[in-house]
Design a binder for these strands. Structure first.
Length: 287
DNA sequence: TTCTTTGTTCCGGA
DNA sequence: GTCCGGAACAAAGA
């Protein structure tokens, strides 16, 4: 699932390979993503040069001269950068030895530097939206977002001020994108495990030290994941290889009934639902 | 056929 | 007015 670290890795790959390139053709196989791709999508983008690529939370932002393309990968969205002759079928293409199923390649961007950008999405919960003559801060999806976790202003003072009149539990607080933007369910679980805090704790009852630890671990785990993801992409061997690498990294997510990752603990990881989202935690280590 | 998965939005109740 | 959580939504695989 693409969360902030995965999106950051994709952005870095794109920066290396397609920055300053011009879009010379677009092929749309399926318009029905989260939001339907409008009819003028291709004609609006063909001829445009990719001037900047940014990330905000889990959103990718492609900047053109007077247009912005906003991309959200949803649950299963992927972006492939590939060098391929347009006349050849993509059906049997391998990318880092991953077989790309043409069935789920919804949009191809052909660039003037020999590369294609492919938007692939099995579940089609992701979306691409084009904005004309709009500033990044004015885009509705981005204007409501809270602070980025790596921002220095995401600190103790900010945290304490935000929770002063909140009744939420800490798990829901971490998922609240107006509080901090970019944490998803997986990393919220991992951060709380690392911080030894129960996901059910009311955020108002957290001590100063616990808040300090949570902030530290958010930054630490996201950074670690970016470094792991970056290196593991190189090592991907096949689809099994991917899940293996990711599972290796998770200490609590998806580990219900398995032993707690802390060697000093003999407890089993519990799985509960908090606000309809799966929460994994150790009832011994996290309180 | 039903359940699960995600981020986002909407809505009713407090 | 604002906060909170539940439900709905998108699609597909198990």
């Amino acid at each position: 699932m693409p969360e902030l670290p995965e999106v950051e890795i994709i952005k870095r790959s794109l920066l290396k390979m397609v920055i300053k390139a011009k879009i010379i053709d677009i092929k749309i196989n399926n318009k029905n993503l989260r939001y339907k791709i409008p009819n003028n999508f291709s004609s609006s983008l063909i001829g445009e040069k990719i001037l900047k690529i940014k990330r905000r939370s889990k959103y990718l932002i492609f900047c053109f001269k007077k247009k912005i393309l906003l991309v959200h990968l949803g649950m299963s969205g992927k972006i492939f950068i590939i060098r391929k002759n347009y006349s050849t079928s993509f059906k049997k293409t391998f990318y880092h030895n991953i077989n790309i199923l043409e069935k789920h390649n919804h949009i191809y961007f052909k660039l003037n530097n020999g590369f294609y950008i492919i938007y692939n999405d099995v579940r089609r919960f992701g979306f691409l939206k084009l904005y004309k003559n709009t500033k990044i801060k004015q885009i509705p999806f981005l204007s409501k977002l809270g602070i980025e976790p790596f921002n220095k202003k995401f600190n103790q003072k900010y945290f304490q001020k935000f929770i002063s009149d909140r009744k939420k539990n800490i798990k829901n607080l971490l998922l609240d994108q107006t509080f901090v933007s970019g944490l998803g369910n997986i990393y919220a679980n991992e951060v709380l495990f690392e911080s030894k805090i129960s996901p059910l704790r009311g955020c108002k009852n957290l001590s100063k030290n616990e808040i300090r630890i949570i902030i530290k671990n958010i930054k630490k785990i996201l950074k670690l994941s970016i470094s792991k993801g970056g290196s593991s992409i190189k090592d991907f061997k096949d689809t099994k290889g991917i899940s293996g690498k990711f599972q290796q990294f998770f200490k609590v997510y998806g580990r219900q009934n398995k032993n707690c990752s802390r060697v000093t603990c003999n407890n089993k990881i519990k799985k509960i639902k908090i606000s309809n989202r799966s929460s994994y935690y150790c009832s011994e280590c996290q309180s």
